[in-house]
C-alpha cells in the first residue's frame, strides 16, 4: 500500500461544501433523468441546495457549491465543455449574481420564494443571453422567451416553497444542519 506524501489540509468548511455539492450533483443527475417536453425547461432541483446553502452559509459557499455542481455535473453527464455545459454555467453565474444582490433585500418581507424566483429568472436570463449571442439568432429565441419565463416563474416558486419548508420545519431543519456537520472521525 502506497502512502500519499501530499497532504492537503482540509478545513471543516471544505468538507461541508463538498458534502453540499455532492447533494446538488445528485439532484442534477436525478433531474437529467426526468423527461422534459421542451429542451431546456427543467425544474432546477439543484437550485434548492444552492438556495439553502446561501441562506445558511452565505454567498461564498453557495458560489462554491454551484461551481462544483456545474463542473462535476458536466463530467458525470458527459457534457463537460459542450454547449449545454456553457449554457448551464452562464445560467448559474447570472443566478448567483442575482442572488448576491437579492440577499440584501429585507428578510422581513422577502423570503426564500422571492430569492428562488429571482434566481430562476436570472438562470434562464443568463442561459438565453448566451444562447442568443452564441448559438441561435436572437429572433428565433424571442418566440420561446414566454415559455422559458413561465417555466422559471413556476419552478422558481415551487423550489422557493420547498426551501421555505425545509428551513421552517423543525424535523427537517434539524436533519439539514445535522447533515452539514463535519464528520466526527476524519
Amino acid at each position: 500500500m502506497t502512502r500519499s506524501v501530499i497532504e492537503l489540509p482540509v478545513t471543516p468548511d471544505d468538507r461541508r461544501i463538498a458534502r453540499l455539492a455532492a447533494l446538488a450533483i445528485g439532484l442534477t443527475l436525478v433531474e437529467a433523468a426526468i423527461p422534459s417536453p421542451i429542451p431546456g425547461v427543467k425544474p432546477g432541483l439543484a437550485n434548492i441546495v444552492i438556495l439553502l446553502v446561501l441562506l445558511q452559509f452565505g454567498w461564498r459557499a453557495a458560489a462554491w457549491v454551484s461551481a462544483l455542481r456545474i463542473l462535476a455535473g458536466g463530467l458525470l453527464l458527459g457534457s463537460l465543455f459542450a454547449p449545454g455545459f456553457w449554457l448551464s454555467a452562464a445560467g448559474a453565474l447570472t443566478s448567483l449574481l442575482v442572488l448576491g444582490l437579492a440577499q440584501h433585500l429585507p428578510q422581513r418581507h422577502f423570503g426564500p420564494v422571492s430569492l428562488s424566483v429571482l434566481a430562476a429568472f436570472g438562470h434562464i436570463g443568463g442561459q438565453l443571453a448566451l444562447a442568443g449571442w452564441w448559438l441561435l439568432p436572437a429572433a428565433a429565441l424571442l418566440k420561446l422567451l414566454p415559455v422559458f419565463a413561465a417555466a422559471a416563474l413556476i419552478f422558481g416558486a415551487v423550489n422557493g416553497v420547498i426551501v421555505a419548508r425545509l428551513l421552517a420545519g423543525p424535523a427537517s431543519s434539524g436533519r439539514q444542519s445535522a447533515s452539514c456537520l463535519p464528520p466526527s472521525a476524519p
Binding site: H109, F110, G111, V113, S114, V117, F121, L153, A157
Partner: peptide, 13 residues
Amino acid sequence: MLRAGDVGVLLAG
C-alpha cells in the same frame, strides 16, 4: 411561508 414581498415578486414575475 409567503411574505409580503414574495407575493409582490410573484405578481411582478
